[in-house]
Design a protein around this nucleic acid. Structure first.
Length: 373
DNA sequence: ACTGTGGTGTGTTGTTCAAT
DNA sequence: ATTGAACAACACACCACAGT
């Protein structure tokens, strides 16, 4: 890892030595593998207040007015947390509970169930290491295994991976479950395999049209929502992740959809978000919402010191443009300029897009801001 | 996994007053 | 008239805890 203190003391030592060192010269380099505003000693600091973004933008709708969806897309990892965890049972008992829950969804609508994938050596492994604090006991899970504590299974990647695997296996193989639950609507399960499996009674087919190599359930959810947007009359997404919320808003806008789309939590009684009216209310900022969320801190991007999602939205509403970010055709300099301008605006610096600012107009960059940067 | 709440601490802004 | 210091009010981020 890196040690900011070591770097800092070396620089101090350089200054105090006789060698001719220019401050500007030193500061022209990164001095650290990640920008210093972004991390704490123990690594990257992940944005903790993601949910404020969702909370301040969302438009709630009551259960009664939400209407009935004919397609339900479910985030598997969020679902697992809310299903009754048998205190004194086996893994099979828990899976049985999952099936019961799915059956209740299946009686209303088609169900697309999506689990996180865990590829080795992905960019996310770093994030995982941070998250896996606390209990870290690895179990070997079989159907007949006595179920360990919820926390142990669901917060350890290794254990969760096994549980997901067992679940997918069971959901796609259990014919009794298929006959009982999929007589009215179909079930599409997405697990480790790139192609989802569709089940309808005795039929079992692979949905090559929905093939996806993505690791994150978030993006797969959105892909499948878009995939069935054509036929469905109303879509419901079961997830309370902010990332999903942002992605949905963005793509709903991009694709110019018109289907009623709601987002509900796997826990009954939580707020239900109406994506369509949320979009209508914030139509002037959706275009820049995804890039803004991306650079101001999300799962794999550390957030900036002292910048919450609240101020980001404020700056966004002031009309800062971020259209080049995420656009593969945009020249790199433009991307850089826009991002710089945006982050500057977040720290309260109004006009300049140039990093040379500090030399030209030092009065715009007070000490306190410098400390942050 | 996420939500929600209350308490705490920090930083920013705006006001007043006095001195230059 | 301008500047700086001191102060209060406010907003925001952070943390711990409890809950589903």
């Amino acid at each position: 890892m890196y040690d900011l203190n070591v770097i800092y003391s070396r620089v101090i030592a350089l200054f105090s030595s006789d060698r001719d060192v220019d401050v500007k010269d030193v500061l022209a380099y990164e001095l650290a593998p990640v920008p210093t505003a972004m991390f704490t000693e123990d690594g990257m600091r992940i944005c903790k207040a993601k949910s404020t973004l969702k909370k301040s933008l969302q438009i709630e709708v009551s259960r009664r007015n939400a209407g009935d969806a004919d397609v339900t897309v479910i985030d598997g990892s969020a679902l697992l947390w809310t299903i009754h965890w048998p205190a004194d049972g086996t893994v099979a008992d828990f899976i049985e509970n999952v099936k019961t829950r799915l059956t209740s969804y299946l009686s209303e609508s088609d169900v697309y169930l999506i689990f996180d994938r865990y590829y080795d050596y992905s960019i996310k492994s770093v994030t995982r290491d941070v998250r896996e604090t606390g209990v870290n006991k690895k179990h070997h899970l079989l159907l007949s295994t006595k179920l360990p504590a919820q926390k142990v299974v669901l917060s350890s990647i290794e254990n969760k991976k096994q549980l997901n695997l067992l679940l997918c296996e069971e959901l796609t193989q259990d014919r009794l479950f298929h006959l009982r639950s999929t007589n009215k609507h179909k079930l599409v399960v997405t697990g480790e395999d790139p192609c989802p499996i569709e089940i309808k009674m005795e039929e079992r087919r692979t949905r090559y049209d929905l093939e996806n190599q993505q690791e994150e359930a978030d993006t797969i959810i959105v892909q499948q929502v878009l995939g069935c947007a054509g036929e469905a009359h109303q879509i419901s997404v079961v997830s309370d992740d902010t990332d999903v919320f942002v992605l949905l808003l963005h793509h709903y806008h991009q694709a110019g959809l018109d289907v009623p789309l709601i987002m509900e939590s796997p826990c009954k009684g939580r707020a239900i978000v109406d994506i369509k009216s949320t979009l209508a209310k914030h139509s002037q900022i959706v275009k820049n919402l995804l890039p803004a969320h991306a650079i101001s801190g999300c799962d794999t991007v550390a957030s900036y010191y002292g910048l919450g999602k609240g101020s980001v939205i404020k700056v966004l509403k002031a009309g800062n443009d971020l259209s080049a970010i995420g656009n593969v055709d945009a020249p790199f300099q433009q991307v850089l300029d826009q991002a710089t301008a945006f982050i500057s605006a977040c720290y309260g610096i109004k006009e300049s897009t140039d990093i040379k600012l500090r030399e030209e107009r030092p009065e715009l960059l007070p000490e306190s801001t410098l400390d942050k940067l």
